[in-house]
Amino acid sequence: MQYFEVLGLAPRLTLDLKDLEKRFYAKSRELHPDRFARAPQAEQQRALELSSLLNDAYRTLREPVARAEYVLKNSGFDIGEQRSKDVPAELLEEVFELNMALEEADRPQIEAAGVRFEKLRAEIDQELATRFGQWDHAAESGTLAQIRGLLNRRRYIENLLRDVNVHLSN
């Protein structure tokens, strides 16, 4: 997986962000186009490609969700679909209640829903961290499938939270 390679890492879902930043800075000094401003055209182009790869890699890997999606995509999982159309079964009731509250512009209810969703998201993040560790220990496809499920739920909750916040800030 190129993004890990360019930063000198083996594919891992759990990363030390301080170490990642240090690697990013060191590699930037080496690859940035500024270092090749007066080099022949071919070398300039190469620096451009490598440093954009480095930047894309750092931007992706420093965010746990984006990092996991990258690993999923490169392991043959399709992450594009199932955006936010299907309501995860266990959230049906929550979503129903939220919609009611939104319709009635019931601020305390909306706020309460926001708190619940944030708690749910925190739980998912907790579980994701566990699964990340599991995959890092033994890279099994089953773990990735579980991670994908978690990410889908997380994305769904994120969208709900966005709705909540839009309403609360209005």
Binding site: S52, L53, D56, R59
Partner: peptide
């Protein structure tokens, strides 16, 4: 606010 060079 993506660091440049950046690509997709």
């Amino acid at each position: 606010n993506s660091t440049i060079p950046a690509s997709v």
